[in-house]
Design a protein around this nucleic acid. Sequence first.
DNA 1: GAAATTCGTAATGGACCTTTACGAACCCGT
DNA 2: ACGGGTTCGTAAAGGTCCATTACGAATTTC
Lengths: 401, 401
Amino acid sequence: MATDHQTASTTTMLRVMNERAVFGEIFRLGPVSRPELAQATGLSKPTISVALANLGRAGLVREVGLRAGPAGRSAVLYEARPEAGWVLAVDIGRSFVRLVLANLAGTIVTRIDDPSGSRNPTDLLAQLTGLADRLTAQVGITRADVTLTVFGTPGIHDKETGSLHLAPNLPGWDLPGAVDRFSVVSPSPYLVENDTDLAAVGEATHGLGLGVAHFAYMSIGTGTGMGIVIDGKLYRGARGCAGEISYLPIGEGDPLQDDPAATRRGMFETVASADGIVAAAQRLGWTKATSAKEVFDAARAGDPIAQRAVEVEVNHVAHALAAVTAVLDLELIVLGGGVGVQGGDLLIGPIQDRLRHLVALQPPRIEVSSLGADAVLDGAVAVGVTAARDLVLDRTVAANA
Amino acid sequence: MATDHQTASTTTMLRVMNERAVFGEIFRLGPVSRPELAQATGLSKPTISVALANLGRAGLVREVGLRAGPAGRSAVLYEARPEAGWVLAVDIGRSFVRLVLANLAGTIVTRIDDPSGSRNPTDLLAQLTGLADRLTAQVGITRADVTLTVFGTPGIHDKETGSLHLAPNLPGWDLPGAVDRFSVVSPSPYLVENDTDLAAVGEATHGLGLGVAHFAYMSIGTGTGMGIVIDGKLYRGARGCAGEISYLPIGEGDPLQDDPAATRRGMFETVASADGIVAAAQRLGWTKATSAKEVFDAARAGDPIAQRAVEVEVNHVAHALAAVTAVLDLELIVLGGGVGVQGGDLLIGPIQDRLRHLVALQPPRIEVSSLGADAVLDGAVAVGVTAARDLVLDRTVAANA
DNA sequence: GAAATTCGTAATGGACCTTTACGAACCCGT
DNA sequence: ACGGGTTCGTAAAGGTCCATTACGAATTTC
């Protein structure tokens, strides 16, 4: 058991803690009065006043009008200064790169979606830098004013070597130091997170995972992946590889597994991703099947071969979720990715039935993501905002010291 | 993301926090002087003195001799008063119940191992109450002086209904309210934890999991189970069913799965537990095989059928660990239980090889438990000690208020 | 326009911790 | 044995932070 022995504190640390609490409540409650903050934090009115004065002097908080009550003097409302910090969130997707700029409240101010060009480090970084320039210019700042940048990428970021593993679609990014070059996009500190993990955070912040302690976001599309939220926090695993469900040992005996490349790609991904569905349909007799969407549409129209292919997919996903349930006992699985979103209506019910037969435990709820493709960006903003708030607060504390 | 918004604090809470920190350091460092405590906590010497005075007045801490240094006045040493609190740990095992009494430092003072008799609630509780009486008498206290009791049981404790699920070997304990009857064993508060989970905590505290952030204890014996430690803390899952790997969908196609009871018992447990090994050996031609130990011994002696049966087991366990690795990306798997301990030498190497073929990720280290059957009790003591320390401290705070 | 109500802050006091200072206790060498 | 050097423990003083109380300011209602 990690012995993070309880740390002792001095009076000055107390004020820092309380200022942090006040700052957090301001975000949580929106424009808010002093009495409301006192109520929310349990601190006294004078203490709130002092904290607000400090936060205001540091440029983190500002007055924003009055609130008239049913009786009595109107209260001054406070809110976080939008320009106290900026978060740049970047989703390096398959066919698009998407960038948004958000303020510390998590409000997205501008956004650019740009088709992916060449994705080697040099070209991609040039593209991102240009887009970041355009984005920041739209709100009258420069890249240097960004507090924190979050990059959502496929694969696993190895901080030791600065390289990206398991991301075959990003050529050249697996070389040592490649990821470190993200620093050219903005001089701010930056975080690199797996895109599926960020989508899970997005669901936890704005989506179906709101208020759910333990859940996972399962993405099925061109590939497969899972972002796991445990105790409300993203779980990354010992080396950042948690949720790499492509490698679940599922689908043994399926003819697709005969391909020697199947193991390298991962057994589950080989059979359950979009082209696994297509291959299943072809094998079942629909030789001209080309896309998973097509298979789902045909199944909805009553085509028996397509329906049989969907059944195969259901079986694979149910096995994967059986493994996840046996290990993690989650409350909820949010289904995302191309297959998850397009086929969710066909899949969820049968998966739940199958799952109940596979494990004698209470299975998790299964639902289709409500955020769609924006889940990654939402998660990136959420991750960035919490980290950026800490950054600006730390600066304030350092300045007051 | 669970919004456990940072909580604000007042000055009085500061002293409580610091007293807690001092108390914790006393346990961590053993007999310790005031200057050492000041160093360890970062607090000043006078503050340490005040804290020790309070803890002493509450009977939690006492002086214990002097330490002479190379020069200068000798420092007074302090230690936790052994009789400040007692933890009763109970392991309700298959063929034995084991009870230990430990002080707040986690030192086991007395122990009783007693063969299991009838295991229905009434008989088992009578047995436990009698044993608790004997145990407490040995140190001159009564059951009423126990601060906290921890029961390690198979199955899952459902706090809503007070019943024990998934524990077929404890007849009658699945009825609502059965578990609540544990209160007759001692008037103290009590905790009920899954035995495998406790073993994981034991490994984390005294065993191979020491200092490892993310690992799991995998028990294979009569049944199968897994205790998962994430971020140094036991992970229980949404309903306490995390680590119920019996239900991993592994071994499909194995003839054992034809039995309709297999699903209820769990696919993995059916094929991989001790009798699964025996059945495999029988099917391979050794019809008079009776125990897993026998199979392992024969395999070591070179018997080809036994070796083949071990290979089957290796394959099943490797598949289970592949699933766990793909989902959780752990650093370490500690192997325990009868099969794990007796067959570990034969299993670990081949499992690792097989695992490397199944997943293209870096597999976890695999090692055999060094604690053996005591892991459960060690974990129960560890869980109980941390909870009991909080209890006695809370009482002190309440008394001082 | 007065009563009632709510807000904001000034003043006071208390709780906690640290720093400084000094006496107490102990070692060692002569 | 005794004095110098060193470490320990606590007393005194000072500073920071927060809560309570009190009161003036601002606003609504009647």
